[in-house]
Design a protein around this nucleic acid. Structure first.
Length: 598
DNA sequence: CCCCCCCC
């Protein structure tokens, strides 16, 4: 077992410099008198493999664990202070190293030996380096140490190991300073993509890097794709240095960083062997689904949601490129009681398993807009995790299983009448203002409306009795009925309904045509019952329609502009009539109020 | 140096 001590760190520290989480070895411990305090204190001899320092003290709270671990213990120093004081005898400045917080990497009995051949850090050395306030130095490791570990993948074969050097937080990186090393976890790696345009062609891939300070995207082009693509693995930690930084384009990345980086031929990427839990996994900036209705098309978002439904895989040809595309739609819902459609492509579409309503966490999905509804689409750079072990995931699992599965949701992807989702809620005024029905195709919407008047004239008609044929028949007045469509005469017919209804919502009123099925729902009678009553009593039609005045329903409407005598008029047909589901309707209203307030 | 991510 090799322990990588942070070689040379003591020289830096004892000169007043900073080193992040240095790894050192404790060679010896000696109990000292602690003056006024009753607490035991220990003086340590510590080594970084290159130098030893005996002016080190252990903070009292660490005593027990270190005593127990014994001599030769290797520790990671999480917090330390190097405190300067003037030696009363010599008059020189000296420093004492106080170890405030340490993590044991390996106890003494496991290490079993002194690592390396450290020499005492001399006073002259300390004074020499104390002169200018030191920036950490670059320390070349012993050559065989890098070779033997075999995890070095750098620009040059004999590039120095970055392992024992000071690392910089990702958030500190900028184009103005190029001497840095980061220690970051790769949280996402794109597929390799090729491009070809007027400026040339090539290939690239990108990866997302995270440390405790933040995140950044790194892209590799051309020959660096070959060099790094297989080497770099998601979830592993790497030391990275010498990439080029430039301003990030927010359109293509949801990462919280104003910069992004590109590998160069100078770049060094080295795997960090130990999994450091201090380096976080992916950093998400979740928004709730309801917020997406107010966000711009093209923006990228992170969401944590439950897969409520999945569509089958669909294959179609892209209009522009002619390529065969594979997709699958996933309906996602979260605690905002709002659902949105997420489109998966290619292999992700094929392999997606929506069984048991898994938690779906996505980072960097693109917001799309279609038919008035919002939707999400996965890009090649989008990270998707199913049932990840993160608090938000457990929280939404609990919510869905206990509450969410029974809630009614507002679907912000709602669009055309043919979609598996419901149509968008629009008021009659909005229908008018938005100019619905002016396109080539009909537009669909739903509204909660009150019936003001249902026309009784020609409420029923006699239709062909053949099940699939609803054509009006001609009464031959001899007990037979002729259907022109079927080119047949029948001894019977069936009643069908047809009526115009003037209906109003809060914003205005409009005339809507209804046919048999919807009129039956409104009237609460079958077409046959209506027809028979009218046949027996000519006054019946007026009475029947009068009963529905001021009744309220949710109407799903189909709107299409049509031309009568050179005059354009919006023709509206009720294609579905449902009783008002107040909980669902209130969800919609609450959603709109929230939209107005945000 | 890409930045296309497609369809209804």
């Amino acid at each position: 077992m090799t322990y990588n001590l942070t070689e040379g760190c003591l020289e830096t520290i004892m000169a007043g410099g900073d080193v992040s989480n240095p790894i050192i070895q404790i060679l010896g411990m000696k109990k000292i008198q602690s003056g006024s305090s009753n607490k035991e204190r220990f003086r340590l001899v510590v080594s970084d493999g290159k130098h030893t320092v005996s002016q080190a003290m252990l903070a009292a709270q660490n005593n027990e664990q270190i005593l127990h671990a014994g001599d030769n213990t290797v520790v990671r120093v999480v917090r330390f202070i190097s405190s300067a004081f003037n030696n009363q005898n010599s008059g020189k400045e000296q420093r004492i190293l106080l170890l405030l917080e340490v993590d044991i990497v390996a106890p003494g009995n496991v290490v079993g030996r002194q690592i390396g051949s450290p020499v005492q850090l001399t006073d002259s050395k300390k004074n020499e380096s104390a002169a200018p306030k030191k920036v950490p130095q670059q320390y070349a490791p012993k050559p065989n140490e890098v070779a033997s570990t075999g995890y070095n993948y750098s620009g040059e074969n004999n590039a120095p190991s970055l392992e024992n050097q000071m690392v910089h937080p990702i958030t500190s990186l900028s184009p103005y300073q190029n001497k840095w090393i980061i220690k970051a976890r790769v949280t996402n790696k794109s597929a390799i993509r090729t491009w070809s345009n007027s400026r040339g062609e090539g290939k690239l891939f990108s990866m997302d890097l995270v440390d405790s300070s933040g995140e950044i995207r790194c892209t590799a082009f051309r020959e660096q794709v070959d060099k790094y693509y297989d080497y770099v693995q998601v979830d592993k930690i790497y030391f990275i240095s010498k990439c080029q930084l430039k301003a990030a384009n927010k359109k293509f990345s949801s990462l919280k960083n104003d910069y992004e980086m590109t590998t160069t031929s100078e770049t060094i990427i080295q795997e960090c062997q130990s999994d450091d839990t201090a380096i976080p996994t992916t950093c998400f900036n979740f928004v709730t689904i309801d917020k997406i209705s107010n966000m711009e098309e093209g923006a990228l978002v992170d969401i944590c949601a439950i897969c409520k439904n999945v569509s089958d895989v669909q294959v179609f040809q892209a209009k522009t490129t002619g390529r065969d595309l594979t997709k699958r739609d996933v309906a996602l819902v979260d605690q905002s009681n709002t659902s949105i459609n997420l489109t998966l492509w290619g292999n992700e579409a094929l392999s997606f398993d929506g069984i048991n309503n898994p938690v779906v966490v996505i980072k960097g999905a693109k917001i799309g807009e279609f038919g008035g509804g919002k939707s999400l689409s996965c890009l090649s750079s989008t990270l998707m995790k199913i049932n990840p072990d993160i608090p938000e995931s457990f929280r939404i699992r609990g919510w869905y299983d206990q509450v969410g599965c029974n809630e009614n949701v507002v679907d912000i992807s709602a669009k055309s009448g043919l979609s598996p989702f419901s149509s968008p809620w629009l008021s009659f005024k909005e229908v008018k203002d938005k100019g619905l029905g002016n396109g080539d195709k009909a537009d669909y919407y739903q509204t909660m409306a009150t019936i003001l008047l249902m026309r009784s004239e020609n409420l029923t008609y006699k239709a062909c009795p053949t099940e699939s044929c609803n054509k009006k028949v001609i009464d031959l007045e001899n007990g037979m009925f002729r259907c022109e469509k079927c080119n047949r005469e029948y001894p019977n017919f069936k009643y069908r309904l047809l009526s115009s209804i003037n209906m109003a919502d809060w914003s205005g009123n409009t005339w809507v045509s209804t046919f048999t099925s919807e009129a039956e729902t409104i009237l609460g009678m079958t077409a046959q019952e209506v027809g028979e009553q009218i046949e027996n009593n000519s006054e019946a039609a007026a009475n029947i329609v009068e009963r529905v005045n001021f009744k309220q329903f949710v109407f799903k409407c189909r709107a299409k502009m049509e031309t009568y005598n050179d005059e354009a008029r919006l023709k509206t047909i009720a294609v579905e009539v449902k009783p008002v589901h107040f909980k669902e309707y209130n969800n919609y209203l609450i959603g709109r109020i929230k939209q107005l307030m945000s």
